[in-house]
Design a protein around this nucleic acid. Structure first.
Lengths: 137, 137
DNA sequence: CTGGAATCTCATGTCAACATGAAGTCAAGT
DNA sequence: ACTTGACTTCATGTTGACATGAGATTCCAG
């Protein structure tokens, strides 16, 4: 498979595949007179990369997992990312609930609604009023 | 409240608040001899901005919502973002399930596991093998 | 064997969301 | 008054993930 064919299969630009290669994410099977050739295993790789990206993982994080030297290390990294994804899902769900309330709230300025404020502030770790020291003390 | 106090409350750097101001997200109540002063309403604003960011919204998207001219427009934008968040949650959950399978899978190279590949490819919109035209065709 | 598409490398540009640094201004404690 | 620290503006640097363009090479249908 040429780089153009692999790219078209995923509707990507070829330079994206070259970029992933430059950061160590995707290495072609062989080179024939300088040109990259890919096999079916690369399809699985690209699929994984796209899935990971859509979950918000960085290319660096994906490279780490894919380049894990052994199963133990890989499982450790996977477990970390699993926890991170769960955290992100919870955060996004919280924001979603906030929007849901804003949609239900009849107040014209929903930021004034006490229930909304209570929801919004939960778990953000903002310092309560009065706990902030002024200048010089 | 000075910019330093508002920043410390959220454990932010002051230049972050100035940056948000420069992109039209957060305008101080007044200026006293050039210095920004904020009130409690700005706490609600910052809270909202942080929540939105943690849900993956861009500053531009947040500005749009917060600067909506009327309730109708705002509800429209909120509904869009709500759908976007749901989409993102689904995507992240899909990647999470993939990781869960990889953690359970006994194969040393989990990308070789057929069940894993099936999971990974679902909903990515990749073109099936054989559907890619070669050069000039 | 030639013309045009596809590929190659290498360099530079882009975009968002800040981060950093310089140089000056203002306010408050001593 | 003086110092110190928070504040000001303005300019430039950083990071991640590409995007764009130049200029050379290679493949293949006609």
């Amino acid at each position: 498979m040429t780089i153009g064919q692999l790219a078209e299969r995923f509707r990507l630009a070829t330079h994206v595949l070259r970029h992933w290669e430059s950061v160590g994410l995707l290495t072609p099977a062989t080179r024939v007179s300088g040109r990259r050739l890919y096999h079916d295993e690369h399809i699985a790789r690209v699929t994984l990369i796209l899935r990971g990206k859509s979950a918000g993982l960085s290319l660096d994080q994906l490279r780490e997992v894919l380049a894990a030297p052994n199963g133990v290390m890989r499982r450790k990294l996977l477990a970390e990312h699993h926890a991170e994804l769960e955290r992100r899902i919870r955060e996004t769900a919280a924001a979603k609930e906030l929007i849901e309330h804003a949609l239900e709230c009849s107040a014209d300025d929903f930021t004034q609604c006490p229930a909304f404020r209570h929801l919004a502030e939960a778990g953000l770790g903002a310092v309560p009023i009065g706990m902030i020291a002024g200048p010089r003390g």
